[in-house]
Design a protein around this nucleic acid. Structure first.
Lengths: 198, 198, 198, 198
DNA sequence: AATGAATGAGTGTTCATTCAT
DNA sequence: TATGAATGAACACTCATTCAT
């Protein structure tokens, strides 16, 4: 009596997601070289071999995690925000509140930010796949800042540099979220001061 | 012409420093797990065995590097700054200018900041040796901020949190300095906005 | 309509034989170590687990295959041949024609020869089960050759050595049959020259 | 005091050859899949890691062994033999005596024949590198046989098929040499009967 | 002191086998 | 009974460390 094909597929998908999600956190905290398959599998609660049922190698697993960490969701929100008929200051507030809330509530979000920003940092090659969304995200943020500059609410400097600064600080507090138990999260206002005028 | 004892000692000291300095950069860029002794020694231009003439193990080498990265020099400047009879805003300017200048000019400084901040992040145990100075540095910075708060030039929030934020941003741009070839460094004003009032 | 016990048994027997026959070829081509259960089951067109319904282990499956490859049929023919009142030369011709015909027509025969001869080669221990028939076959062939030596049609050398030579060449062309697509099969006369006098 | 570059190179060459030679026998006897690096290194009397100092992988080691087993020496002799002003029968005798003598005296020769013939068998792709010499060897042997056919001393059949048969028998007795302790080696005359007329 | 070949414990990966469905 | 996902022991390979030179 063979298992139903559908149920099988379902189980596979479930396990694959479990591995991806747990690995996301593990890799974000320990880095690629610092992650041992033996530790990782123990952490997930499966046998080492099981990982290789779903992924060809440690490297492939890592690459798949980076795809997850592409922040396409964040990007989608940014696009929507861009087209809204409100002031840049208000847009920034919405963005910052969303980001800080997710950072607090979702450990995975922090891990995704951490990993994708690290990739952006460590690789000068613009070709790396997982970073397309990231740089696009920066682009939209820069546009938001430019609007703010026209409205005299944002600092008069290279918008791209400021966008990079803003998301850099988000990266910084993603690291804090991931590594330290007790820490003081900065406020939305603190984050906004990276780009806001007086 | 036998070498004098002193000359011998001198040569030893020289090699030891070369190893430490080159390793500092290598570890800062690749992390502890990501650094192979084989790669490291090739990068330094010596044989693998030579490292073990000067250091007992990879771990000991790393610990010695962390000692180097203790930023005692920065701390000394902070202490001096604290006692100067000038406004907090001016003190902050002096500090920020020094930091940004060193960041630009000395790659080693960036590496030291990167490593010591990472240690602070990754280890919740306050006991870790290399981080004493670091936290002391934060303490002095908090005092500076508190002065600024009394003088109404600094943001009215937990001074320790703000100090942490300030040095966090310094860490962020240390990473940029270490990893990316082309990047826009933030200005002293950008850095100061982490703690300064409008 | 519940299946009858017999029908059930029949189906079992059928599957078991399918596995044995397909495995025979697979093992003959890839060797024991070179055969993966995953590849083998894919080749047969069943799930990996199914093999373990019929056989306890890879080793047991291999042992069962060797039993199949015992060439008892060949041996029976040899016995019959031995007692026939004809010249050794004629007997040899009948044997050789049968062998070469089966080699050409039945891939399984080639696989059986290949596996059983390999066992004979690789194991010095005469105790190994699957090789009893084989050595018996060699014995009867030696007798045939001895008759030929008396009749002056066979080479005057150790009959056992010549029998071994004869079947060695059969093994050789079993390998060709198994591994190469395009090859020239030797003729019956070529084979017979291993033992026949000019 | 660094080791002299020359001595170092020498030591490396020596160890590399030891590994190659010992592995040749091990692979010939156990096949690629049946050879474990752990067993192999124990057999050689070195640590597992040492193999990877000299070869990138088990596969590369095997490829290098196949290059060794290319029988270029045998080929050279064949070329010389071809041009000698003597009868094909005499050439065949010289060839056969050389081959049988080496088979008896040099276990490595048997291993080389075994491995290179197996490669020839298992790979239909004519592109495989290690088999160039082998097929060339067959070509020269076929020429020798053709000369014999003109001189009426060799069997009147496809010369290439006969050459293949001749070397097939050599392969067969290489296997016996490698696998069995006590065996009767065929005589030079036995071997020659593969191609010689009455 | 400096070297780099050799080592073997430790890591990534495979594969025969099990087991819930 | 048949399945194929899950397992973990065994295997290939790496790398921090040692040691003869």
């Amino acid at each position: 009596m063979p298992k139903s094909k559908e149920r099988c597929q379902e189980i596979r998908e479930e396990m694959r997601n479990t591995i991806l999600q747990k690995s996301l956190l593990y890799f974000a905290r320990n880095g690629f070289a610092g992650t041992k398959i033996s530790d990782l599998s123990r952490n997930i609660g499966i046998a080492q071999g099981t990982i290789y049922v779903y992924f060809e190698s440690k490297e492939e697993l890592f690459r798949e995690i980076l795809k997850l960490a592409d922040n396409s969701q964040m990007l989608k929100q940014m696009k929507k925000l861009t087209n809204m008929p409100i002031s840049a200051a208000k847009k920034l507030r919405i963005l910052s509140e969303t980001v800080m809330k997710r950072l607090e509530e979702e450990e995975d979000f922090a891990a995704m930010i951490a990993l994708s920003t690290q990739m952006l940092l460590e690789k000068d090659q613009a070709s790396s796949e997982g970073t397309i969304y990231q740089t696009e995200l920066y682009g939209y943020t820069a546009k938001l800042i430019e609007q703010g500059q026209r409205e005299k609410t944002m600092v008069e400097e290279s918008a791209m540099k400021l966008a990079d600064y803003y998301w850099g600080v988000v990266y910084l507090y993603s690291l804090k979220r991931l590594f330290t138990r007790e820490y003081e999260m900065i406020s939305v206002e603190d984050l906004e001061r990276t780009v806001r005028k007086g």
